[in-house]
Design a binder for these strands. Structure first.
Lengths: 222, 222
DNA sequence: CGGCATCCGGGAAGATACTG
DNA sequence: CAGTATCTTCCCGGATGCCG
């Protein structure tokens, strides 16, 4: 195992692709970026991956030192997968990919999206110059998943867990949140897919902090 | 064509992988980052790619708006492939990949490396804080390829062509240059694989501008 | 030779069913 | 729930051949 189908190229990018270039590999790692996950959770948040491919990718990530399998202590006693510190550093890669792809004319922002993806996208797209001296706690709830974030001029730190007394909080499904932040869909139009708590002016401000870059010209006139 | 095997995921990283996630795709694009190239040149600098795969990748890059095929004007009249402006923006991705992979314990820096890879690696690994108020012109020659670079606190701009009156110039093969910069191999030890012209103190300074990050711990004690 | 189509073998990915 | 087994499909990679 850990075949490492080689490019025989000393270029760092080539080696990175040997490590995480297989189909699904980077998306699996992405799902581990905000804390340990179970096999079934990963499968549910990676629509279209099959169980055997997920098994294989997890084994490869583990063999390469990017993820680890861990047994939660009793009484939970379930097995979870978590990213190693080096695996977490790959967030710089998903950010570069995401920022670049945001300019694609063929990007479909209405497709399904996982909670982790939305939250990571906030970190990737945050326009620090728009934050000013804002410094707020934000809570997120997607079904059984709760996350809390601290947003200020240093960035947007997000971790698993309930927010204590957030200035702002979102609950609902990840797709609706993405629609509100990136698609300009008014929150009132989302019905019960997305509910928000907090000062309305702060909500409106929050929604402006993650601007998308302009799309590339679709095609030069032939 | 342009199948775009979909991940059905609105995450930008997933869409990026749909565009450039196929095997070899990003490495082909990398080879176009410093100017147009011919089919045979690409094939020579991507050891291990087969002609039909290269043909297919180029067609996909073109269909997706990342590269274009162009006929050079007479008397050359040869066909070249060049990256589009959006394709060039993918350099941020190769940089993120390269910087991340540089920490890999399994990275083999002695493998073959293309001229473009080495030069791009300088842009990726340049430690700006070490540049100070240095502002120099650097010439590179690898066989038939000549590049000139301008290195200062703003970065390292590199383009195709002969350097007019460089403060520093390197000639030889890309692998030897990588060994000198990243492997600490003394230039005198490289024989005729690498020749350098310029103030020796400046050469020594240049070689310190591209530090590699520390490797990750190989394996936690079990 | 440069560029591209075609054929084929091997292997990875995808779908489904099955097991502890 | 967490995988494993099996089967099919598709992509990758090598070889050959055509055509400018």
């Amino acid at each position: 195992m850990a075949d490492l189908r080689s490019y025989d190229d000393a270029c760092g990018a080539a080696h990175a692709l040997e490590l995480i270039g297989e189909r699904w590999a980077l998306l699996v790692l992405r799902e581990l970026m905000l804390g340990p996950r179970r096999f079934g959770e990963l499968r549910a948040d990676l629509p279209g991956i099959s169980a055997n491919v997920l098994t294989q990718r997890l084994a490869e990530l583990e063999a390469r030192g990017l993820a680890a399998r861990r047994q939660l202590p009793p009484p939970a006693s379930v097995q979870v997968y978590e990213a190693t510190p080096w695996g977490l550093e790959a967030e710089a890669i998903t950010q570069a990919l995401g920022r670049w792809a945001a300019r694609s004319p063929r990007h479909d922002p209405t497709a399904p999206i996982s909670p982790v993806s939305v939250l990571l996208s906030f970190r990737a797209m945050l326009a620090r110059e728009r934050v000013g001296d804002l410094d707020i706690g934000v809570g997120f709830r997607f079904g059984d998943y709760a996350y809390r974030g601290r947003l200020n001029g240093d960035g947007f730190v997000i971790e698993r867990g309930e927010a204590a007394a957030p200035d702002l909080s979102f609950a609902g499904d990840a797709r609706a949140l993405a629609g509100a932040v990136y698609g300009g869909v008014p929150i009132e139009a989302q019905g019960d897919a997305l509910t928000v708590a907090g000062d309305p002016a702060l909500v409106a401000r929050f929604l402006t902090l993650f601007p998308l870059p302009p799309k590339v010209a679709t095609r030069p006139p032939c």
